[in-house]
Computed example of a mutant assay.
Amino acid sequence: MSAGGLKAVFLAERPMLLRLLSSRLGDPDLAQDLLQELWLKLEATATGPLADPAAYLFRMASNLALDHRRSTARRIQREQGWSEVQPSHAEYATAEDTLISRERLAEMERAIAALPERTSAIFRAYRFEGASRKGIAADLEISVSPVEKHLQRAYRAIHIIRDGEGVDAARA
């Protein structure tokens, strides 16, 4: 069956596909979204001859619903894990702890600022902007190895601050 024929079967079976997704997900709006995603997959994917195109579409819809439920379960598990390691209201820092943390953060910022300009720029791009090492290397027209060495230098400076040796030791 051609892609056009499969789309015609999709259009004919659309109400049943929507009903299947709604029953599997329990959310009609989400079912509409996944039905749209199914249509986009049909647009993007070239298919060969199919013996039973309707069964193929229903299997695709079932798989989309299952994938969505699995990803939702993983997201919930991640969020629960994250909330478990966050401090409770009773564990919030005192004013003194907050002041100490701010001073240490300021020391780290000074340590990063004291690094050579290129090292600081690479560190900021990697840690704050989310750029990959490979992407940074391509932007600077260098290999990945020097990028990693710059990052090591920056991390060393931060570890020195974290271990309480101060900004002067980080410059060394």
Rank of each mutant, 00 (worst) to 15 (best):
R69N: 10
T72V: 11
K7N: 00
V144R: 14
E129T: 06
L151Q: 07
A54Q: 10
Y56A: 12
G26F: 00
I100Q: 15
S101N: 11
L30S: 01
E91Q: 13
Q32C: 01
A114I: 04
A51W: 04
V85E: 10
D168N: 09
A125K: 15
S145D: 10
L115G: 06
I160L: 09
L42S: 08
D27A: 08
S145Q: 15
L50Y: 08
D139A: 13
L25V: 02
W39V: 01
E91R: 02
A172K: 12
A114Q: 09
R74D: 06
A169L: 08
A106L: 13
R75K: 15
E148S: 14
R24I: 01
R153W: 03
L11I: 01
M60I: 04
R102I: 03
G4W: 08
I76P: 00
E103I: 09
Y92M: 15
Q86C: 10
E129S: 03
R153S: 14
H68G: 00
R156T: 09
L34W: 06
A111V: 10
G81I: 00
T45A: 11
V144T: 10
G130Y: 03
I100S: 07
S22P: 03
A46R: 15
E91F: 03
M108Y: 06
A106S: 10
L115C: 07
Q86F: 01
I142K: 09
I142V: 15
